[in-house]
Simulated scan of single mutants.
Amino acid sequence: MTERISNTANSYLGGAKQTIGETIGNPDLAASGAAQKSQADAAQKAVDAKTHAEGIGHKVQGEVQQNVGSLTGNTSMEARGHANEVRGDLERKV
């Protein structure tokens, strides 16, 4: 979550620096802002991809736990499996 906040802040700050640089005719500030925004946006895409991959893993893990729990009559494992599957679904939507 901290990375997401940091990336968002850096993206907005970079965009603001770029706009200010363009407005006052300072190409160095504009370029610096554009670079900061691009780096933050790329870092955020990487974080999103990682979270999505983890979500797939949790969903699969949950499905396996539910099936094993159901076959063995272990309702606790089945419930943990359902929780992991829901967690995976949420992570994939982020």
Rank of each mutant, 00 (worst) to 15 (best):
M1H: 09
M1C: 07
M1G: 10
M1N: 02
E3L: 14
I5R: 14
I5Y: 11
S6L: 12
S6M: 13
S6W: 11
T8W: 15
A9Y: 12
Y12C: 12
Y12L: 14
L13D: 10
L13G: 09
G14Q: 02
G15N: 03
A16M: 10
Q18A: 04
Q18C: 02
T19D: 12
T19Y: 11
T19R: 14
I20W: 04
I20F: 01
G21P: 00
G21A: 05
G21L: 05
I24E: 04
D28R: 09
D28W: 01
D28Q: 13
A30W: 03
A31G: 02
S32W: 00
G33H: 03
G33A: 02
G33T: 00
A34V: 04
A34F: 01
Q36V: 03
Q36E: 08
K37N: 06
A40S: 02
D41K: 12
D41F: 07
A42T: 07
A42H: 06
K45S: 07
V47S: 12
V47G: 02
V47M: 11
V47K: 07
A49G: 04
K50R: 12
A53K: 03
A53F: 07
A53N: 08
G55D: 03
G55F: 05
G55Y: 06
G55P: 05
G55V: 03
I56D: 11
I56W: 10
H58G: 01
V60L: 11
Q61H: 14
Q61C: 13
G62T: 04
G62F: 05
E63C: 01
Q66V: 01
Q66T: 05
N67L: 15
N67Y: 13
N67D: 15
V68N: 01
V68D: 07
S70R: 14
L71W: 08
T72H: 01
T75P: 10
T75N: 14
T75F: 09
T75Y: 08
T75W: 08
S76W: 00
M77P: 01
A79D: 13
R80W: 13
G81A: 04
H82R: 15
A83D: 09
A83P: 07
A83I: 06
N84F: 15
N84A: 10
N84M: 11
E85G: 08
E85Y: 13
V86G: 02
D89A: 13
D89F: 09
D89E: 14
L90C: 04
L90R: 15
L90G: 12
R92L: 08
R92H: 11
K93W: 03
